[in-house]
């Protein structure tokens, strides 16, 4: 005990170092977060679900069309959301929802992406605030976590890209 408390600030210093190491892992490795709301329904439930986010995709690094991303909402300082990437810089995307009467297409500008929720009528996304700056992307959602049962490996469900090759179409020919 005397060795542990040898230096008056030793415990404090060790705690700070451990916190800082944890912060490093959460900022540049993987982080978890809670999400709620109907905007990504059928992919994510309305509540009681956690996400595992790969932070190496921060600021849109190696993001592909179809990935689910955690992003900072541009019109609400400090708030974050989860949506799916519909278009990357240079892609042509539909400005509004399909079937509302307007077929306006826009080209996503450089350094931006177009994101929408899976539940189109109940989602606030790029159709409201426009293309999202890539720098607001915090990471890519790689798994969702639901605590059911005692075996921790059953809690995780991998989140796949929504863009499948045509050969994998669920419609049997």
């Amino acid at each position: 005990m005397s060795s542990l408390l040898g230096h008056p600030f030793r415990v404090l210093i060790y705690t700070t170092k451990a916190l800082a190491l944890g912060h490093l892992l959460v900022t540049y490795g993987y982080s978890t977060g809670y999400g709620w709301g109907p905007s990504m329904l059928p992919t994510f439930l309305t509540m009681n679900e956690w996400f595992v986010t790969d932070r190496s995709h921060r600021r849109g690094r190696r993001i592909c069309v179809g990935d689910c991303v955690v992003y900072g909402i541009p019109v609400a300082p400090g708030e974050e959301g989860v949506k799916r990437v519909l278009g990357l810089p240079g892609d042509y995307v539909l400005l509004n929802s399909p079937g509302v009467g307007s077929d306006t297409m826009i080209q996503v500008p450089k350094g931006h992406c177009y994101i929408v929720g899976d539940n189109l009528p109940w989602s606030r996304d790029s159709r409201d605030f426009g293309p999202l700056p890539m720098a607001l992307i915090k990471g890519k959602v790689v798994a969702k976590v639901v605590v059911n049962g005692w075996w921790p490996f059953n809690w995780f469900t991998r989140v796949e890209s929504g863009l499948h090759p045509v050969s994998d179409s669920p419609i049997k020919t």
Partner: peptide, 9 residues
């Protein structure tokens, strides 16, 4: 450039 992920860096 449209696909360069390091634009926002």
């Amino acid at each position: 450039g449209s696909r360069n992920p390091y634009d926002p860096e």
